Simulated assay, not measured.
Amino acid sequence: MNRSALNSRREELYSQGVIQHYLQSPQRNLPALPYEVCIYLAECYACGNVRLLKSKLLAIGRWHTENGFPDPTECRSVIQLTQLIRALTELKANALQPPPTISDVKCITDVLQQYFHPTGATPQTLTFHQKLACRNRAIWLIAFWFGLSTSDVCRLRTRDVHLDQNSLTITTKWIDDQSEAKFSFRLTCLPVICPVSALEVWLKNSNGPVDYLFPRTTRKSLVGPISSRSVHAYVKRLIAATPGASANTSDQHYSLYFF
């Protein structure tokens, strides 16, 4: 059995499992009306069973399509409820994960510093992992002190950043449903875990980024910034591999800079 056939078989078995779970309640039948699917979604949310919600809806929609019935998951009420559940689930997850403290950030940057030894190094002599540690250290410190998420920092372009001898200014966009605005934040050099010096070291050892401040390093055929997911994965691996190191590596949406 080739890979395509194997994946199709897995999808079929998963869909069958979803349908069996849907029909466990005696009040539910197939074909289903949109309001019945909404009740099913509400029950899943109440029980905390919101994992793979999109796949469950696809399985229900697939059953209706294959059996010649209208797909209730495409109804506006089902779509709106799904979006609401995802938003509430994300809020719950964020509420359970406190932001990193200054002690966490110091631990993380100390570990990254161990893997990056700038003394006498040049962009040509640095190893791949040294460049990753140098880059991620700058991303982490900028995110913490400027109150940005790591994904915001990863998407920064060179034109968004102004670096002089003693300070760093970052201009970012804030977009909501009605408008778009720009905000500038300025931070002077700090005595410890300083984002200004960390960015200076990165720029010195990164062969001069042209567009994005933190471009991709592994898949150079794809133009764009490094993903925040890869930054977090790298930091978590280093923390786990370093004896005695323990730190909160959750995403950063809060900053001491604003308090």
Rank of each mutant, 00 (worst) to 15 (best):
E43Q: 07
C38I: 07
T73R: 14
I60G: 09
P72C: 12
A46S: 14
N67P: 01
I79G: 04
C44R: 15
C75I: 04
L52F: 06
C38D: 02
P70E: 13
L57Y: 02
T65H: 05
R76E: 11
C38N: 08
S77N: 07
V37K: 12
N29L: 01
L84D: 05
K54N: 04
T82N: 14
A46V: 04
N29Q: 09
K56W: 03
P72E: 14
L81T: 02
L84M: 13
C47L: 13
N49L: 12
L81K: 14
R62T: 05
C75D: 12
D71N: 12
P34K: 15
G48F: 09
N67M: 11
C75Y: 11
R76A: 11
L53P: 11
N29R: 09
C47P: 00
W63E: 07
L52N: 14
Q83H: 12
Q80N: 05
L84W: 03
L57T: 03
I60Q: 04
A59C: 10
D71P: 06
A42Y: 01
C47Y: 03
L41P: 03
Y40E: 07
K56P: 00
L57V: 00
R51K: 13
I79W: 06
P72S: 15
G68R: 12
G68W: 15
A59Y: 03
G48D: 08
G68Y: 08
C38M: 11
T73S: 10
S55Y: 00
L57P: 00
C38A: 07
E43N: 05
L84S: 11
N29G: 04
C38K: 13
I60E: 13
I85G: 11
K56I: 08
C38S: 07
L84V: 10
W63C: 04
P31R: 03
S55C: 06
A32T: 03
D71E: 05
A59D: 08
E66Y: 06
E36C: 04
C38T: 05
L58D: 08
L81G: 01
S77W: 01
T82S: 14
Q83G: 15
N67I: 01
L33D: 06
A42I: 01
P70I: 13
D71S: 06
N29D: 01
E36F: 00
R76M: 10
P31Y: 10
G48S: 01
L53V: 05
Y45P: 00
S77R: 08
I79M: 09
C44S: 15
Y35H: 12
K54G: 03
K54Y: 00
V37P: 02
C47G: 01
L41Q: 08
A46M: 07
K54L: 04
L41V: 01
L81F: 11
H64T: 02
I39E: 13
I85T: 14
L52W: 01
L33S: 09
L41S: 02
W63S: 14
I85Y: 12
L41M: 11
Q80L: 15
Q83V: 03
S77M: 06
E74T: 14
H64I: 10
R62A: 13
K56A: 07
T73C: 13
L57M: 02
C75A: 15
R76C: 04
A46L: 08
